[in-house]
């Protein structure tokens, strides 16, 4: 068997793949957080809870309505996105004139409510979600056997991240978004309905989280706590990357996932904390974050 740095190659590549999957979730979530922060100036603490709702939504679609994985990949983000739209319209929009910290506290409260309700209804133990038949099995890549579903998650996540980047950086809609992030009143004075843009931005960020949730459903067990364990790590990812750049969020997300995977191979005890350690190093050397802009 091939060995790399004293570690069997399949184990190493396996962990890198797992890292990429975690990285995919980090990237999708931190991307949404960054986009929402840019427009709304709030850190959406409920992001983890909405990720969890995405997973639950696909589970419910399957078990209550009989709608399978692939339709759920579109439907769940749509449904949760609409839920986010309602949240923004009815609750979050009341906060824009206040200190940013209130947005964090409000969405933290939301996260507690959402998670508490799901825990009441479904308990804390996880529920399985079967990998769709088409993505069952594994492919021999020569140096390792790759479970098809895991390859699919990484592929789809990369595509969605790139698509989000392209929408924001390369389209007229994206130009409006970027301009409104810089100077919202001026953009509104040009005739753009900025409040509506804000609402849809929130819904879009939420839909990204829900999409990640659907992708995660067959990998992690679908349970009410799956979001919170992720969101604190995602916060560290956001601090490391800085929220100034879309591509930065994506690269940081995937990169940290891989670092985490490699740590599992070489120093398993530290794998849960390595992202935070990286954050400490970044804070010491580049407090603004790797891709952060000044101020």
């Amino acid at each position: 068997m091939m060995m790399i740095l004293g570690v069997p190659a399949p184990l190493l590549f396996g962990q890198v793949l797992l890292g990429l999957i975690n990285g995919a979730f980090y990237a999708l979530l931190s991307l949404g957080l960054a986009v929402i922060f840019g427009m709304l100036n709030i850190i959406n603490f409920a992001h983890g809870a909405l990720f969890m709702m995405g997973a639950f939504c696909s589970w419910m679609l399957l078990n209550y309505v009989g709608i399978g994985y692939f339709p759920a990949l579109f439907l769940a983000p749509l449904i949760i996105g609409i839920f986010g739209l309602v949240l923004e319209k009815t609750i979050i929009s009341r906060l824009y004139k206040l200190d940013h910290l209130y947005g964090l506290l409000l969405t933290f409260g939301m996260a507690l409510v959402i998670e508490g309700l799901f825990r009441n209804a479904y308990g804390s133990s996880g529920m399985p979600y079967r990998i769709p038949d088409m993505l069952q099995g594994a492919t021999n890549l020569g140096f390792m056997y790759m479970p098809n579903y895991r390859g699919w998650v990484v592929l789809v996540a990369v595509i969605v991240c790139l698509a989000t980047w392209a929408i924001i950086e390369k389209t007229p809609l994206g130009a409006k978004l970027r301009a409104a992030t810089e100077n919202a009143p001026m953009v509104q004075a040009f005739g753009v309905n900025v409040p509506r843009l804000i609402t849809f931005t929130y819904a879009g960020g939420v839909a990204l989280a829900a999409f990640a949730g659907v992708l995660a459903a067959p990998i992690l067990s679908v349970n009410p706590n799956m979001g919170t364990s992720l969101i604190t790590t995602v916060f560290a990812v956001v601090v490391i990357g800085g929220m100034g750049s879309i591509m930065g969020s994506v690269v940081t997300g995937f990169g940290l996932g891989v670092i985490e995977g490699l740590t599992k191979v070489f120093w398993p005890e530290a794998s849960a904390t390595v992202v935070f350690l990286v954050m400490v190093i970044v804070l010491l050397t580049r407090p603004r974050g790797l891709f952060g802009k000044s101020a």
Binding site: R178, A179, E182, Q188, G191, V192
Partner: peptide, 27 residues
Amino acid sequence: MPNQVARSGIAICPEERAIFGSLTVTE
């Protein structure tokens, strides 16, 4: 609202110019 004023046919060129740094010149 400002966007409705703009839609009624008034456009402003503000004192601070408000050129957006994250947008290209064409954008």
